[in-house]
Nucleic acid binder design. Sequence first.
DNA 1: GCATTTTGTATTGCACACAATATAATAGCT
DNA 2: AGCTATTATATTGTGTGCAATACAAAATGC
Lengths: 163, 163
Amino acid sequence: MTNNQTRSDQGASGEGVDPLRLDLQLCFALYGASNRVTRLYRPLLAPLGLTYPQYLVMLVLWERAPRSVGDLGQALDLDSGTLTPLLKRMETQGLVGRARDPRDERRVIVSLTEKGAALRGPAGAVPGQLVCRLGGDLGDLAALRTALQALNRRLDAADGALP
Amino acid sequence: MTNNQTRSDQGASGEGVDPLRLDLQLCFALYGASNRVTRLYRPLLAPLGLTYPQYLVMLVLWERAPRSVGDLGQALDLDSGTLTPLLKRMETQGLVGRARDPRDERRVIVSLTEKGAALRGPAGAVPGQLVCRLGGDLGDLAALRTALQALNRRLDAADGALP
DNA sequence: GCATTTTGTATTGCACACAATATAATAGCT
DNA sequence: AGCTATTATATTGTGTGCAATACAAAATGC
């Protein structure tokens, strides 16, 4: 905190917005927010034996399982190079099962074990704890979510464009 | 894209906000946005020989250099375990210099080499390219920046609280 | 029926991110 | 001075994140 406020820091609205400084501040804010959230979740997830990305995988699986690796990757916006070792660690912990789809031997189907499904209960308390720690207004967070989802749509559109 | 819209997705405002689903959606949105931004920068920074975190380090150094490792870590919200190998790679590339502070031998001072300082010119075009790719309204981005900065202040406050 | 292309995962290599620990140097206290 | 506590960085180990590549199974073309 308390840095990159050199020069005058033109306001959030109006027409005199400098794209370069805005980009710089947005990069820092987004990058920092993501790291901070991961850090804040860490102590809450450690008792469950989960890292933050593993927690996100479980959230997706709790919504619907079993699913293929590719399906998971699409939901989480991660590729197989990231998911494969992550899922193997979760398999070692007995949270998920991995097996080839007999109907298409190229696919690997990820399923919830009983232990993995049972973890949903204790994990249900985590978001509450976090929101409690954060305090403040929930409306702010809802607005932020909406803004980030809009950004993500723009980022997806920008990704497949010129390359 | 086009996922996590299960069930009805209660709106951005109003009072019937479910903290659990909000948390879930916010996590996905923030995590995904951070990854997407890194991906989008990658091809723009590759010609400069920089990764995204290295680019952030250079942004900080272009604002003010030389600085100590701890100073950099505070500005970027990263610890030495992350910065040390990152800075060593940048030193190998000839972008920065690392030297002990003669006035306090515990400190390592990171300075810009001529090559590192010269990179500021070409790098100046990067934010413009990105904003161009993103398109749309700049006001949105300014509002998002402000919202993220507010979130970061809350996250910082929540971090040092109960542990 | 066989060769080619496409599709879905896995593997490998490199670069973060951080907790835990180690190391070394300054600062404080008596 | 001598001892202890604090401070600043480095090291180590684990876990992502992604590009590039490899590989195997299915779909397609002839």
